[in-house]
Structure formats: C-alpha cells, structure tokens
Write a protein that binds this DNA or RNA. Structure first.
Lengths: 104, 104
DNA sequence: AGATTAGGTAGGGGATCGCCTACCTGTCAA
DNA sequence: TTGACAGGTAGGCGATCCCCTACCTAATCT
C-alpha cells in the first residue's frame, strides 16, 4: 500500500507512456511488441517503460529472453481517489445544467 | 464540451499546480493570495496559472485590479472518464484480495 | 561454439521546464 | 494627480526531458 506520488503524475504526462498503458489493457506484452506501435526506437520505449515501472504503473516478468510487461492499476486507483475532492465541482455543474434543461 | 488533451496531463504533472488546484477547492482566490502559500515569486505563480488556464482547469474573473481564479472541474471529470477502462484491473485485484481473506 | 535475438544502459544533443529579476499596464487611494 | 498595489509579460539560465546511436549482456537457435 503506497501513496500517490509525483512519479505517477509525471509518468502520465507523456502521451507515449499513456499509449503504452492503453496497449497493456489487452494484457501483458513484450517490449518489441509494444515498440512496434510507435514511431520511436526501441531503447526509447525501454526508457518509457522504466519510468512507468518506477511509478508502479507496470511490472515486468522475465520469460526466457523476453520481458513481459503488465499493467499495474493501483496507482490509477489512487489517482481516482485523488479526484474525489473535485467531484462536487462537476456535480454542481451537472446539476445547474439539469436545472436549466428542466425549465425548457 | 471538449476532450481530454495532453495539456491537462501536462498541467497536472507539476506539484505546484496541483497545490494550486487544491487551494482553489475552498473557492475563488486572488493571485497574491495563492502566491502567499508558496516559496516561489509571484510571476512564477502567474505562469503556473496560465498553464492551468490553457488546460481549462481554472478560469479568471477580473474584479477591480484583482483577478479571481476559480476551479473548473470539467477536465478532471474527463480524467475520471479516462480512468474507466482501467477500473476492471483494480477491481480484479480487490476481488483476489477478498478471496484470499475469505479463506482465512 | 558461433550467430541471432530480446532488451537494458551510456552518453549526447536539442527542446522544454521552472524558476528568477526587470519591467509594463491598469486600478485604487490620498 | 501622484504614489502604491495587483498582476501579466520578457528574457535569461540551469535542470530536466525525450529522442537518438552505440554498445552490452543474456538467452536461443543452428
């Protein structure tokens, strides 16, 4: 049980890293498999994966000479918790919109 | 109605900017008021506010010679929607934990 | 054993970030 | 009207980011 850190927000700031997470929604993948979806070289993908790993967003498992990367959703769960205090703001907004529509 | 953009993730990547959002949970504040909570100079706070404004996370209202900054939660709502596809991952994790505990 | 493949690491270079000081405009108060 | 105050903008500078190529180890295949 950790707490949401700067690493997670920093990791999510890169479009390439968010795309990596999206690809991992379908299940574990190797580095080459992941890299094939990008216009960048494999070492750059490796570096992005390291940043995701350090943020706890992915884990790796060695399988022969491959590394299988897997999504770890816990930091994203903590991100959802981070959002909670802000919920009432968009709920208030939604309510105001409903009220306007009801008067039409 | 916009869509979640890189700007939002980039804006949230800075601890100072997340702290600004947190301060705005209590309601609108002026730049000087906000700046008083930081170890940085006011122009730097202004720059952070510009980034938050460009990301749609805050809005400003001119009141005399002051600018009142206000939280705009819509991009955060879109962030919550972005999280949805990942939810099943931490739910699966929670379920596995429950199953283990039930066997104890 | 030697060649090939998966993938991490080192080091470099250009772009961007985050802070600063200096300066500017617009508003209020004496 | 003149001085003080709120706050945005310009420009600079060091740190970090993101990509690259070159290189290395470990595992597999022939």
């Amino acid at each position: 049980m950790t707490t949401l850190t700067d690493d997670v927000f920093a990791a999510l700031a890169s479009p390439a890293r968010r795309e990596l997470l999206r690809l991992l929604l379908d299940g574990p993948r190797t580095v080459n498999d992941l890299a094939s979806h990008f216009d960048m070289r494999r070492p750059s993908v490796s570096e992005h994966l390291k940043i995701l790993r350090d943020a706890g967003l992915v884990s790796e498992r060695k399988v022969g000479r491959e590394r299988h990367y897997q999504l770890e959703a816990e930091p994203l769960m903590e991100l959802q918790e981070w959002l909670h205090p802000y919920e009432r703001f968009w709920r208030a907004r939604a309510k105001a919109l409903r009220d306007v529509l009801e008067e039409m």
